[in-house]
Amino acid sequence: MNRLLFVEDDESNRVALAALLEDEGFKVDSTPSFEEASRLLRAASASYDAVLLDQTLSDGWGTNLIPLVRSVLPKAKVLVLSGTVVSPTTLDEADGALPKGVYFPDLVARLRRLLAEPR
C-alpha cells in the first residue's frame, strides 16, 4: 500500500480528496499546515511514497517543503496541486503539477504513473 502525505489547508478539499484517495487504496496522512507537514516529514517514522502539496498554504508556500522532502525522503514523488500558474522553479523541483480542480480519475492516474517511475 502506497503511503501519501497530503498537505492542504482547505479543510473541505482536504477531507474530500483524502477520502477519495483512501478509497483508491492509498494510506493517507493529511495535514493543513506547512509546520505540521515539516514535523511529519522529519519524524523518524516518515515513509511516504509521495507527497501531494497544495502550493499556497496559510502558513507558507507548500512548494518550499520540496527541499525537505528531497532531503529526508529522496525516493518520494512530489505532486503539486495549484489553483494558479505554477512557477518554472516549482516545475523544475517537483515531479509533477496539476490544477486543483483536476478530475479525480486524472489525478489518480497521474499519481500512479509517478509512483511507477523510478526516482
Binding site: S12, N13, A16, G83, Y103, F104
Partner: peptide, 10 residues
C-alpha cells in the same frame, strides 16, 4: 479554486 475542487471531488 478550492471551492470548485471540493465540489468536484465530493
Amino acid at each position: 479554486s478550492n471551492r470548485l475542487a471540493s465540489v468536484g471531488n465530493m
